[in-house]
Each structure stands twice: as structure tokens, then as C-alpha cells.
Write a protein that binds this DNA or RNA. Sequence first.
DNA 1: TGGCCTATGTATAACGA
DNA 2: TTCGTTATACATAGGCC
Lengths: 239, 239
Amino acid sequence: MTRKKVKLAFIVNDSARKATFKKRKKGLLKKVDELSTLCGIDACAIIYSPYDPQPEVWPSPLGVQQVLSKFRRMPEMEQSKKMVNQESFLRQRIAKSTEQLKKQTKENREKEMTQLMFQYLGEGNIMHNVNMLDLNDLAYLIDQYLKDINRRIELLTRESQSQSQPPMPPPPVVKDEVANVEEEGQGSHAQQGLNINMDSMQPKENWFVNLMSGANVDQPHVFGDANQQSGFWPNTFFH
Amino acid sequence: MTRKKVKLAFIVNDSARKATFKKRKKGLLKKVDELSTLCGIDACAIIYSPYDPQPEVWPSPLGVQQVLSKFRRMPEMEQSKKMVNQESFLRQRIAKSTEQLKKQTKENREKEMTQLMFQYLGEGNIMHNVNMLDLNDLAYLIDQYLKDINRRIELLTRESQSQSQPPMPPPPVVKDEVANVEEEGQGSHAQQGLNINMDSMQPKENWFVNLMSGANVDQPHVFGDANQQSGFWPNTFFH
DNA sequence: TGGCCTATGTATAACGA
DNA sequence: TTCGTTATACATAGGCC
């Protein structure tokens, strides 16, 4: 937990294990002591170690006996009910870690796709090594961007009109080529780093459809691996 | 323990106490889990709380039972032997604090006495408000200084003689007025800040005896308070 | 109430004497 | 081995939903 992130596993080196044991046992008892003091609760701890035939107990043999008798007095069934046991404890920890991993993965995926998009826009050519999952996510991402752009255009148009200027022709709405997408996007992803030059974008507005229409089927597209779970966007496309 | 150093005492506010309890209980169980994993030892914990009629146990009801049966199988006498109980735990903590306090007190005392000595040498007058304990320690300190001075003189004398110069009269050894002092001084205290002018010191060489011989009994000397423990030097004087 | 966040206090791994 | 020290990781009090 310091100098190096220790791997949570049995320490093979004997002396290191003993040293760690002593330190951590001390820290643990301090924690128990503090918890007991701060919250005024009964608690006890029993620790067996290979370094001593006697277990170490807290807060005292008598204190342990008292807590234990209270515990043993309880019917067996009651004891198992609502208890925190190792399984549920580990389950909680795993769930939390999984949650964090998911969050991070989503974030990574988003960055990946953004990079991919700008790479295409920059090089203006056909994309290599792009698989179906990437295309799904990319399509969604771009769709969000396009929607955001249209929203901005509309906003600007209304502002112009509210300033009582002569009516203008309808604005050049960027066409949303990806159809049947639910209207659930909040466009939050578009809020950062969207400094695209509209002029340079216009001629490419339907690049995605071209890409998908089979014009480049000879490219070595890698298609979806069943084991690969994107999970980045709602899986609503191509399924 | 964050944002503010929490006082280790019962938390009066109910909701705050409950929140702290939940957090700390979780942390505690994690610690127990880690200790168990890292060091491969059997351990269990039982925690009663006012928030649940059931105690929380670790690692599992079965695991607790196993550890407990191991524990109960032990003769009562054995249980109390070599155990870490609350009393010895606190005793250890107190011992450590006491040790630190002692060290600091000794250091302070030394500085006090040194200051007192130079104050006397500087003002060249009778000392007021000096009690017997101070005199004890001061005498010891000065004795150490004198011994160191004589040692230096002797060293210088020998150097002169080894240079084959005509024999000199015996050097003016500073007389050690404080008798029956064991020869255990290492003079370490004299190594720093001893820049006393020997000439100005000579006429005062027996100030301490004068002070003690009754010449100043009219001075309001405060004598030793039984409750006051100096503990600075070995208590070999005036006892 | 219950989770989440962040600034800070603690615990402790690694190392040196 | 057992201290003491130092650099880091972790735990968590107090806020804010």
C-alpha cells in the first residue's frame, strides 16, 4: 500500500509476511479500538497467528467472553440471517470493481471513437481495420455530433429572426444520414472539443453512407467478434 | 480523520455516528480480509451495533464458529496468558507516549540548567529562586564542565612537554570543589558552547561551596518539593 | 437515508541502521 | 530482528446531492 501497490495475495517471504502481520495487526486493533470508542459499540476480535499458540484477542478475554455469550445465545438460524459473510462481502467488492471497470471502458471507448472520427475527417480517405462494432459506435457518435450542429444552427437562425431582420432562406441543415435513432441524445459529448470547420465538412456529409453502401467492400473489414463487448453505446444498431 | 483531525471520543450526533460506523465497519472488515489473505491466518470478527439486532461477523458464521471452537477449547488460564487485551494495548500506547515525554523533559531540563549556569557566570552574583533540585543538577553540570576543562589543560601541558621545552610549573588545575562524584562523566555536555574565559572564571572557582556553606542562607531559596521529580541527572547528590 | 466526491489524515511497504 | 524513516496508497470526515 505504499512505495508499491501490494498484490492482495499470500506473502511468500516468511520474514516479510511476519513483519506485515505485526504492522497490520497493530493497525487493525487500533481501528477496532477507534470504532468502539467513536460509535460506542460492543466489538471483539480474535486473531490466530502462527507466531503464537495463543490467539490475540480484543478488547480483553472478559470482553470477548461477553460478546461471545451474547452471540452463542442466539439461535443458529438467526445467526445466519442478515449477516455479512465472506461471500457477500466479496460479492460487493467485485461488483464495485466491475462498475469502475465499466465506467473506464466506456470512457476509453468514447475517446477511441472520437479519435477515429477525426482521423477520418483529417485524412479524408477510406478507413482501414475498422470492424462492425467500431462502425456502430462511430455512427452513433457522429450522429450525436450532427444533431448538435443542427441544434446550434437552428438556435443561430432564431436569434437572427428575433432581431427583426428580413426573412432568410432556410438554413443549410446538415442532413442526418443515420435514420431511426431514438431521440434520447442529450449531446453532452459534443460539448467539448467540437471545433470543426463547417465548410470543410459539407462535402463529406454523407461519407458514412458511402462507407456502408458497399463502395469499399474490398477493404479488409474485421467483423464483430462475439467475445468482444463494446457496451459503449446502446446496442441499437445492426443487431 | 480527514478535513479535520477527529477527536477520539464518542460521537454525540446520532446520524454522524451512524455514518461513521458504517464507513469504519466496512474499512475494518476490509482490513481483516487483507490481513487474513496476506498472512494466511485464521481470524474472525464480530461486531454488534445498535442498528441491527444481528451482529455482523467475518468471514462467515461457519468461519466464526470454527475459530471460536478453537478458542473455547482452550483452558481458561491459557486464554488469559500472553493475550493482547485492552489493558496491555493501552499500556503500550501510554508507555510510548511516556517515553517521548521523558526524552523531551530531559532535553528541556538540560537546556534550563545550561541557561542558569551562564546566567550566573554572566551576572556574577548570587542566584535567586534556585531550589535544591536545580542546585543538584547544576552542580553536576558544572562538575562535568570543570572536568572537561582540566582534561584539556592536561592535554595541552603534555603537548608542551613533548615538544622538549624546559619543564614548567604544574598547570593551574581548576579545582573540583564538588567531592565524592563518581568518575563516570563522559563530558559529552561540555562539547558544545563551552567558550568560557578562564581568567574571569578563576576567582569564582569555589562559588558553589560558598553558595552551599550558608553564606547566603538569608536568600529565599526554595527547597525541594517532594512532588517534583527532576530525573535529569543520576540522583546521587544531597540525598 | 444513502451514495458520491475530494481534501486530508492514516496506515504501511520498502529500506537503512 | 527490530527499530525509525520516508514515500505512497488508502481510509474517511464533511459536503452535496
